[in-house]
Write a protein that binds this DNA or RNA. Structure first.
Lengths: 353, 353
DNA sequence: GACTGGCACTCTCTCCACCGGAGTGCCAGT
DNA sequence: ACTGGCACTCCGGTGGAGAGAGTGCCAGTC
């Protein structure tokens, strides 16, 4: 027995597996040998197909819900299908248009990201995900401060990629409007183009250098700058279209609906997962048991990084039951993430020019 | 037959109705004469109670799901209960503490409002609502502008009530950083304390007056000001805790769950409804048929205005099945809305001082 | 040796009949 | 005015029968 049995599945077995996965994705019901025989793709009797299916079950690609039901794919079956058997459907022109328009028209990247999750959800009929992590490798174009109340300052950071982030911070000092403008101008002039992380380190170094000089204004500037950079820019995770799971037969009973909704509520777990995915390049597909979270809830995730090549900004993707149309989801997520990335890179070049 | 039959319900019938509503709210099951007789509050036999119940049914306060079931309250029954029979439970100290802390601790009103809906949802075990309409009667403390890209300016408006609103607007002119600072300072100095609506009208008047003078800077100022005020500050509606309906027996089957989730998704309808409620002062309770939206979905809404007395800022409340603990929901919503209002008024006074 | 038909078996799902429980309305009696 | 009794209705659960779908295995065929 070879170490990687999936690579020497004979062509017929591959075809059978492929057909079972396709039909199961389509119908949601276990596939029996008779059904398979009647579909016309094989010139084999049910009995022969039973033998093939029995082999596939032994290899762990198929499983039976109960003794006398047809077979359904296992996680491993899906995985093999995705890696070796799937033929990605190309996007329809309509889908392409919808995405291009949504991404192209909106002026703010923030806005696009806000909408992207529900767009994705609509197009895929799954739950759309958009994740924007706290990025300390976020290069800034400008930083400004606006007084909101005596000791509360709103800090607005514009990134070189056009993303705008704002956050109210609590400060120790009081600031006049003039001071805030001055500080904003100073920090922007001094640090534009640097990442938040580097700015932070540099400011901290400056604290030490300045301590001797007793320059009150400089102290306030540094203090505010550090506060701004340290302020927890929260992860943002949009989970949109949870209602789409209401239609899925796998969640048709009230109990699993309940479980599933609650699972999608647990954003921390999803954030952890997406943060891990963020390290990898290219389209990623996680099936069931391939992560703790997806295993527990029988989810699959199709996601891809977006952002300029050098500095990924976040993840877009979909989450849904393991039985999903991978062949359609893959290009969809892929295309959207590329469209977003293109938009972001345009923004950056626009900035340099 | 009197025009308002509910006012001359004899005391015994009132007590029976009250008991039926209470028990039905508690159990969710239709109440029969036997159950009622056994509860001990009436020294009557089931047969006598049947007569009373039959009367109440004729008057439209009770209904039978089917011939041989007990009775459940109708919309009208709930209404009578709420108006004349309900004894509001006072909040537990724990509930009071949780609300006080949540409202007191958070520094930003925005933040409080963000959290208020999920707080309310948790405390009530219903769906929490927080609505913040576009308010043209929004008095400002300051207005500032920050360049985000060449023709895109982020406008940050701080209200006298401490609410911070920000929005990116598309402009016709290009602005330097200096110009933006100048404009912000000018508008803040000139218009602080006025409502957005008055600012808009004044700016429009100024357009006409200035047209002759050819002051480029002034033109840009007015143009940007008008853009900022006209920019659609969207209604914000937070609908939190939709998962709480998963537990309610009235939505236990998949079909009604589906309908209910989709209904809560239709935010426009909810916004319309809450906007209407905004006109009324004090705690409002809408039961089933009392509005189109609640009728279709068998919802009830308990909501109350918040904001300073003179200028209501929005609505907080809960939405859930008609069978809800009105006696607990009413004081809960009431207390939260008062806490929010207090917070907002503090903020305003703090500003004047 | 690969494929096929046949057969006995298993498991689920649906339909239907049945019955108990709960509740009602009505009536006669106190 | 209230009560007990009685016949009736309707819901919900239970249990068995039977159909349908699928399997495994075996013996037979090319």
């Amino acid at each position: 027995m070879p170490t990687r049995p999936e690579f020497d599945l004979d062509p017929r077995a591959r075809e059978v597996l492929r057909e079972i996965v396709l039909q199961y994705i389509d119908s949601g019901e276990a596939i029996g040998s008779r059904t398979l025989s009647k579909c016309g793709k094989f010139q084999l009797s049910p009995a022969s197909l039973r033998n093939v299916m029995s082999d596939l079950e032994e290899l762990g690609f198929l499983a039976q819900p109960h003794t006398s039901a047809g077979r359904i794919p296992t996680d491993r079956g899906y995985r093999f299908f995705i890696n070796h058997l799937m033929k990605s459907r190309s996007l329809s022109t309509r889908e392409r248009e919808v995405i291009d328009e949504e991404v192209g028209v909106a002026s703010e990247i923030d806005e696009v990201l806000h909408h992207a999750s529900s767009l994705l959800s609509k197009l895929s009929d799954q739950v759309g995900l958009v994740f924007m992590p706290t990025l300390l490798q976020f290069a800034i174009r400008s930083m400004d401060f606006i007084g909101v109340a005596d000791s509360r300052i709103m800090c607005v950071i514009v990134g070189t990629n056009g993303v705008v982030v704002n956050k109210v911070i609590e400060t120790r000092f009081m600031f006049t409007r003039d001071e805030l403008e001055k500080i904003g101008r100073y920090i922007t002039a001094e640090f534009a183009g640097l990442t938040l992380d580097r700015i932070r380190r540099r400011l901290i170094r400056m604290t030490e250098e300045e301590r001797a000089q007793h320059d009150a204004m400089m102290q306030k500037t540094i203090s505010l700058g550090i506060d701004a950079v340290n302020a927890p820019f929260e992860h943002e995770l949009y989970v949109e279209g949870a209602t789409s799971i209401l239609n899925k037969p796998e969640y048709s009973d009230a109990a699993s609906l309940r479980k599933t909704f609650l699972a999608l509520q647990e954003k921390e777990k999803l954030v952890d997962l997406l943060e891990m995915c963020l390290r990898e390049e290219g389209l990623q597909i996680l099936v069931g048991s391939e992560s703790d979270f997806t295993q527990v809830h029988n989810f699959s995730i199709v996601a891809r990084r977006y952002g300029s090549g050098s500095a990924p900004l976040g993840m877009v993707g979909i989450i849904g039951p393991m039985r999903m149309e991978y062949a359609r989801m893959a290009p969809l997520v892929d295309y959207l993430s590329r469209a977003l990335s293109r938009k972001i890179e345009e923004e950056e070049h626009h900035d340099h020019g």
